[in-house]
Measured scan of single mutants.
Amino acid sequence: MAAAAAAGAGPEMVRGQVFDVGPRYTNLSYIGEGAYGMVCSAYDNVNKVRVAIKKISPFEHQTYCQRTLREIKILLRFRHENIIGINDIIRAPTIEQMKDVYIVQDLMETDLYKLLKTQHLSNDHICYFLYQILRGLKYIHSANVLHRDLKPSNLLLNTTCDLKICDFGLARVADPDHDHTGFLTEYVATRWYRAPEIMLNSKGYTKSIDIWSVGCILAEMLSNRPIFPGKHYLDQLNHILGILGSPSQEDLNCIINLKARNYLLSLPHKNKVPWNRLFPNADSKALDLLDKMLTFNPHKRIEVEQALAHPYLEQYYDPSDEPIAEAPFKFDMELDDLPKEKLKELIFEETARFQPGYRS
């Protein structure tokens, strides 16, 4: 834990890192770190609560700039109880001085990944967590956004079992017609939660990839272990087919990539493993919904509104309290091709509203 900075004593240090967030945020305490930044909790002297502050230093890398800009653009436009918001952003007053960006968010005690390492969940908890994931996802999908990296560590939890989806750095506007060349190379989302079509096709992607990830998360809540822990690309596919069985001819016809289709045709026939054999203690309604989410063919996979209306979630289902976005989200430009200098300018502009004396 960093010592509390005395008023006016300059930035606090946390594990050798400068955290320049005073005077409003003090009493910093280390939480963890990701690929390009550290997260601390801090005391907000204005709202009198502890908050989470993520320090991001992305400006050396085009990919990190892209992810940072995506996350900020999306989260500043989203407003939903099951999606983490941005409360404040701290950065230098000029673009030349801006080396880091500090993002202030609600402090959540833990995440689903940490929880599943230590606790076996009751059916009631599984049901409530799944409902909140789908409630947040309904809003995301209504904005025409794909999260693309749903996994237990991106689901934040607090002691009252509130759940918030975080990390929109890989999110995209849904565009089933656009052929994202190089899709697989830039697709760094965790393999275990990846839909089979991501490994088999490169053309376009749809909201059904997020539903697949939610199915993987439900299976993990039922058993405290990942359902498809593939060691590499082909191993991942083999794990999936080992449980779902061989795809039907109709399902194979959806695979545009001939090499991928021929690979699947070359494999020995596998039978589907019954879900109640894998999860003998699970609620039968939970397994019915799991089956509809972990469907090989993305066109037959359940959609988020149908999933919310499934009998497993009937005690929570309330369409009048499951809000959607006001308007579909649009990125003005494809960020993939922009140089990091341009992305830095866009991050600077996007964060201006939090600067003292800002006038829109």
Rank of each mutant, 00 (worst) to 15 (best):
H125K: 09
Q355E: 10
I227A: 01
R79Q: 10
Y139V: 13
D336S: 02
K270A: 04
E345S: 01
I56A: 11
A3R: 14
D336Y: 14
Q236L: 15
L338V: 03
E305G: 03
S153W: 07
Q306S: 03
D235E: 15
A189M: 12
D175G: 12
E60D: 15
L222S: 06
R277N: 03
M221N: 01
A52W: 07
S284C: 11
T190P: 11
S360H: 13
S213Q: 06
C40R: 01
D321G: 06
I89T: 03
L258F: 07
D235W: 02
H120E: 08
H80L: 15
Y139D: 08
K292Y: 06
D210L: 11
P152M: 07
T181V: 08
Q306L: 14
Y36Q: 00
C161F: 14
V14E: 09
G34R: 14
V14W: 09
H120I: 01
A7V: 04
P247D: 01
P356F: 00
L134E: 08
Y131V: 07
V39D: 02
Q62I: 11
N281P: 00
R67W: 12
I53Y: 00
R301Y: 07
E341K: 14
E349N: 01
T118Q: 07
A327S: 12
K300F: 10
I240R: 05
N262G: 05
K55G: 11
I95S: 07
P11W: 13
R77F: 01
A189D: 03
A143M: 09
T68W: 01
H178A: 06
K203S: 11
Y102D: 12
L308S: 02
V145R: 05
N257V: 10
T206R: 11
L287G: 05
L155T: 02
K55H: 09
A325M: 01
R194E: 14
I227P: 02
M108H: 04
V104N: 04
Y128L: 12
D106E: 15
F183W: 07
I83C: 02
N276S: 12
A52H: 00
L112I: 05
V49N: 05
D318Y: 14
P328D: 09
D100E: 14
L289C: 08
G22K: 10
G357W: 01
Q132N: 09
V173E: 15
D177M: 06
L290Y: 10
C161M: 08
P328Y: 07
P323C: 04
S223H: 05
R70H: 09
Q132D: 08
G22W: 02
M199F: 10
H180G: 09
Y233C: 07
R225D: 01
R261T: 11
K73Q: 13
I211C: 12
H180T: 05
L28A: 08
S122K: 08
L278K: 03
H239M: 09
Y131D: 03
Y64V: 09
N123E: 10
S41C: 12
A325H: 00
R148C: 12
L290M: 09
S41F: 05
I165W: 10
A171M: 04
